[in-house]
Design a protein around this nucleic acid. Sequence first.
DNA 1: TTATGACCAGATAAGCAAATTCAGTCATCA
DNA 2: TGATGACTGAATTTGCTTATCTGGTCATAA
Lengths: 247, 247
Amino acid sequence: MASQHKAEHGRIEERSKREERADRILDAAAELMLRWGYNKTTIDDIARLAGVAKGTIYLHWKTREDLFTALMRREYNRLVKDFQRRIASDPDGGTLYGITKHSMLATMKSPLMKAMFLKDTDLLGEWMRKEYTSESFPQQVAQSLALIESVRSRGVVRDDIDAHRQVYMLDAITIGFLVIDQYMPDEFKYSDEEVVEMVTEAVKRVFAPPGPQPDEKTKQEVANTLISSLDNVLAIRNKIDQEEATS
Amino acid sequence: MASQHKAEHGRIEERSKREERADRILDAAAELMLRWGYNKTTIDDIARLAGVAKGTIYLHWKTREDLFTALMRREYNRLVKDFQRRIASDPDGGTLYGITKHSMLATMKSPLMKAMFLKDTDLLGEWMRKEYTSESFPQQVAQSLALIESVRSRGVVRDDIDAHRQVYMLDAITIGFLVIDQYMPDEFKYSDEEVVEMVTEAVKRVFAPPGPQPDEKTKQEVANTLISSLDNVLAIRNKIDQEEATS
DNA sequence: TTATGACCAGATAAGCAAATTCAGTCATCA
DNA sequence: TGATGACTGAATTTGCTTATCTGGTCATAA
């Protein structure tokens, strides 16, 4: 009994130690990827920065590509959780503009995810071509569509425009504010927060319904629906990950 | 008297023949540039397609770079004139959303200008790095700012936002709608006209002033100011061109 | 005088062998 | 049993030579 408990305890401790190490390796990978891009970040570099031997990395992931995929998944998980947290703690988290605001802030704070949404080849290099990206944006758009339909049905945004077009407009506006700083001269540099303020204002006005503001209860509902649907997305993804890991 | 007139007539005819040929050469350059991009479009190709000898091209422009700069200038002139024509014939030509609508339509119809605004390296290649682009966008932005200030002062758009931010927002939105189609999956493909309809709607809502619609006279004024300020821009540019040509 | 295209030199690409890099493995160690 | 890093072969890069291309000129022809 005692020994069994001890063994289990040991296993758990070991597991968490493993995970901690995996995290450290991913941290190193993230740092190097941001500095040098995918193509120029080698396993040796990562191992050195993480303070482990190269072989150790292969105790965690089968290939280099897998490692970076894991990194991006972790980044995505963090982004989504950050997003959920922001939504939950903002009274406007149940409005379209609130949602846009927090999704943009979360995206801006995560350079790797931003690179992925914007298909930044410099950073993602070869990884983009094979892995994630083909599914990534369409998936993002699908979620956009579900979101729009959810807020429309509750009268939180106007519904006198085709839903698909509304998604198109919303994505055009957010992408626009994500890329515009590359084009503007120096007199027009704004902080992330200022930019987000501007998108929020724009989204608020473009999608505001003709009637009165949504009441608190509706906003709560929308926020909750969104948060739990994101829980779902994460759960499904993690399930797929596990199945892939076991197979 | 008669012979003098004849000579003059001859000179004019000759001049216009020259210009016609220059135009033909630029047409060829435009076609090839769109197909192969700047880097892979050779003077020989252009000469062959235009049906002239290579040396003839150097009777018109000192260098290859000059030729493409002339092409872009012609394209810009055409865009501006197209834009002016559209503005003049639209009753909403004196509103910010009308202006946006027509500037976007004009831009979309001119792939080379679109490439320039978006800094499309694939198309513009080396030309971009040396020539136009450094001045191009800032100049565009400066015009944006002048435009915003002009419409603001006449109450055509709201003035409860900092003018610089308004420019930033307007440019973010237009750029967004110009690039978004690269990101959207196939179910979300819209024609230029449909896209412009959406931008117009967005701009209308984001920048609408709180008060009543501007009256016809104000719109006329704004449209006229804009058109003549564009005349000015063109005049200045052409003057610079001539000075460069003579020096 | 105007237009041409053969011609030139410098730049760019193609070809190729040697050197280096790097993802992934595995015998060895603790 | 978990971690290591020397090792391997495939892939990429480097260095260099040769071949091709192409912007720009200019003697010649119309």
